[in-house]
Structure formats: C-alpha cells, structure tokens
Computed example of a mutant assay.
Amino acid sequence: MLRHALFVSLIVLLAACGNGEPVEQSIRPAMVVQPQPATEMMDAYAGEVRARLEPELAFRIGGKVARRLVEVGDQVRKDQPLAELDPQDVRLQLEAMRAQVAAAEANLQLVRAERDRYKTLLARQLVSRSQYDNAENLYRSGEARLKQVRAEFDVASNQAGYAVLRASQDGVIARRMVEVGQVVAAGQTVFILAADGEREVSISLPEQAFERFKVGQPVAVELWSQPDRRFPGRIREISPAADSQSRTFAARVAFSAGKVPAELGQSARVFIAHNGEVPLSVPLSALTAEQGQPYVWVVDPRDSTLKRTPVRVGAYAESSVPVLEGLQASDWVIAAGVQVLREGQRVRPVDRANRTVKLAAKE
C-alpha cells in the first residue's frame, strides 16, 4: 500500500509540472564594465582638477587692508565685494578735489563776469582791444581749469570705489594671498578666483619625454572619486618653459565630453598613449576560454541578453588583459561570474556598487 501511495503521488506531481505552463526564471544581476584603453600602453600623470579661467584679483590702488569679506572655498557672484582697503586717504583726496572743483567754478564765474564787463566797455570804446583780449584769455583759462579739476575729481571718485575689491565674475575663491592689516601695492594679487564653467586637469610633463606631447593630443582622464570611468580629453596647452625647480612643463588637459562630474581640487590621473594605437583592455575576471579560444560575455543593450564573443588578447597584466580584436569601446562586458553564464541568458546589468546600469543601444 505504501509503494502504491508513493507511485500515485509521483504521478500527480509530474502531472502538475507538465501542465504546459513555462517555468519563470529569475533575472540575475551581473556586473558590467566597458573596455578601457590598456594602461600598460599608456603613461599616467597625476593631476588636479582646476578651473579653465583663474583670474588673479587685485586692488587698483595701494593701501592697508581693512576688511576681508570672503574665505577660501566661498562661492561668489559677479561684482560681490571681497575685501576693502582703509578708505581714509582716498576720502580725503576726494574731498580735496571736490574743494578744487568748487574753487574753479567760483573763479570761472568771476572771470566770466569780468570778460562780459570788458566786452560792454569795448563796445563803448572805453577800454582798449588788448585789455578785452586779456579778460577773454583769463576766462578761457578759468574754463580749462574747471574741466581739468573735474576730470581729476572723477579720477579721485573712481579711486574711492577701487578701495573695494569686487569679483570679476561668478566663481569660487581658490586662494587668498593677504591678511587684514597688510599693506598692499596696486596690482598685488589678493585672491585667485576659480571661475564657474569649464573644468580642466593641471598636470606636469617630464622634460625627458617632452617631444612626445603636443597641443590637441587625445588623452584619457580618470578621477580619483570614479576609478572605474575614463573620460576623453585633450591637451589644451603646454607651458613653453620648464619649471626652474621641478624641471617639468606645466600642461592643461581639457575634457572632450560635455559635462563631467569633476569638482575643484579633485585628484585625477591623465593617461597619455605611447606612439601607435592603444588596444582596449578588460578585467581578468571578464575573460574565460573554451578549447583554447578566449572569449567574453557581451550584453546586448536592446534586451540585456548575453552573447559569447571570441576575442584575441595580448600579454596578461596584473589585473587586466589587453584585447587586440573582438571588442569595441562601446560594448558592455560581464566582469565577474562568467563561468556560470550561458548564451542568450538575460541579466540585469549593475555596476560595482550594485546600481542598475542603463545600457545605451547602438546606433
């Protein structure tokens, strides 16, 4: 009886499994990466993210710094006051020029009245022509003097405004060069402003390999905060002279991509290729082989299914392997667990932080 009962139970179980309904399979997450330029074929240079424009802000007149209104790292807007000089001297100079303007105006009124009186007397032939000409010259001199002192008053008024240092444009205060109470000369740098807008990476190029670098040369930039991503860039400028102490040439690298999440002061590495084409590379964990033929799993961006893709590889590195043929830079490759995957399997692409990755379909 027990054997009969087990037989019946087995038949019922098989009937339930064979009812024609497909068994739904769960979509497993799979870590994906994109091929990167092989670092073994590139030189890496440490750098720092800087602003494209870094104007040096200075007072246009000399004086004693009375107030400092911002600190390093503060966000400022155009025309925002940053620092002030002791205004006493410029105010006194302005008052002196205002008094000279008043004196010149009074003198002009006097010589004008004198000229008009001599003009009337000349018409009655009570004074000579030379006496009238002298009065006319005094009037013209007084008029010129008034124009001169008014111009000097405008200069003094401008200098009174120059006692307040204002931001030339929106940005962030990158450096501060003076302290309150310090006496500064006209044109002496007070702040360095990192203007809002485009960001670049500042690097130093070695003297012994200087001939390999040129303006416009393509590079790859890796931010310290995002070590798994490479951003395309180019060398925008190279200093024509080496630094006297380090004997390196300062260079600026501009990002080629539209918007890059680079913040001021971040550390970065700039990868510059050796002469010749640089192959792509993938992590060692992404590579597997069957019957001596290496291959990787490439994710189809349209439906997130897997495709076995044979590749030709170069010499293995410590953590990556260069791919000479078989991959494109836009491909998405499974980076781990490749031994348990199968052709056509559907996956959920994620990054190293287990965040879902949206794959862009190829054109």
Results as ranks from 00 to 15, higher is better:
L2C: 06
R3G: 14
F7N: 10
L14W: 11
C17G: 13
C17E: 07
G20V: 01
P29D: 00
P29G: 00
A30V: 00
Q36N: 08
P37V: 02
E40P: 00
M42Q: 13
E48G: 08
E54Q: 15
I61A: 03
G63L: 10
R67W: 05
E71C: 10
V76I: 09
K78W: 09
D79W: 09
D89W: 12
R91Q: 14
L108E: 03
R117E: 09
T120Q: 15
L121R: 09
L126K: 07
R129N: 10
S130F: 10
S130T: 13
R140M: 09
G142C: 04
G142F: 01
E143Q: 11
R145M: 11
R145I: 06
V149P: 10
F153E: 06
S157N: 10
L165G: 01
R166K: 14
R166L: 12
Q169G: 06
I173F: 10
R175Q: 15
V178E: 05
V183G: 06
G197F: 05
E198D: 12
R199M: 09
E200C: 06
S202K: 06
F210H: 11
F210V: 12
Q217H: 07
E222Q: 14
W224T: 11
P227V: 03
R230T: 03
R230C: 04
R234E: 15
P240E: 01
S244E: 13
S246T: 14
T248F: 09
R252P: 04
S256Y: 06
A257D: 12
K259S: 11
S267G: 15
I272K: 06
N275Q: 14
V278F: 02
S281A: 05
V282D: 00
P283K: 00
E290Q: 11
Q291K: 15
P294L: 01
V296L: 01
W297D: 00
W297K: 00
V298N: 01
R302W: 11
S304N: 15
S304G: 11
K307Y: 08
R308F: 07
V313E: 01
G314K: 03
V321K: 00
D331A: 04
Q345K: 08
R346S: 04
V347G: 02
R348K: 15
P349H: 00
R352E: 02
